Simulated scan of single mutants.
Amino acid sequence: MEPIPDPLVTQFARHVATRDDPPPYVPPRQDREAILQRLDAELRRLGVRLSNRRLTLARLCLALAPHPRRTSVQLADELALSRQTVVAAMALLLPPGYVVYEKVGRHRYYRYTRAGEDWLLPLLTGEPAPAA
């Protein structure tokens, strides 16, 4: 008859055998709330201090994402904001070079730059940004 191993020894042996294994992969949340939280944190890092302005800008980022370009009027209508609010909020993404606009007549057509797309994609997916 074989001796019954002590559960403490078995548990400790299992711990030692697996201690260098990476933790199991847990995919990041990709629901709207999680995306808005990641955008909020990133916009805070960029220096946008007012929480309502960060939320407006985060919503604008999401509204612009699926389109090649949008006017400030289209964005304002989609989010029930004034055109002036859209223009003021989007102006915060111009200096880092994430967004540019082209003026055609009375309208400003906003679009993401390549740098803006590279900035936004990890925020949407929750995956870490590739090393620059």
Rank of each mutant, 00 (worst) to 15 (best):
P3D: 13
P28M: 10
R49I: 10
R53S: 14
D31I: 04
T18K: 08
V86D: 01
A34Y: 06
A129I: 01
D40S: 10
P28H: 09
S72W: 02
P95G: 03
Y101T: 00
S82R: 13
H107S: 11
T125R: 10
Q37P: 00
P128S: 14
L39S: 01
I4W: 06
R45V: 07
R29P: 06
Y109L: 14
L75H: 05
P122I: 08
A13I: 06
L123H: 08
R45S: 12
L121F: 13
G116Y: 07
A80R: 14
L81I: 02
T85G: 05
W119C: 11
M90G: 00
R69C: 06
N52G: 06
E2I: 12
Y112L: 15
E2P: 15
I4A: 12
P95V: 05
P5R: 15
K103A: 12
P95I: 07
L46C: 11
L94C: 00
C61T: 15
L121M: 11
L36G: 05
T71N: 06
Q84C: 04
I35W: 01
L55A: 11
L124P: 02
L8D: 12
R19N: 08
L62D: 05
I4D: 13
A76Q: 10
P22K: 11
A34E: 05
Y98G: 02
G105M: 01
L57P: 10
P3M: 11
T71I: 01
R108S: 05
E33Y: 08
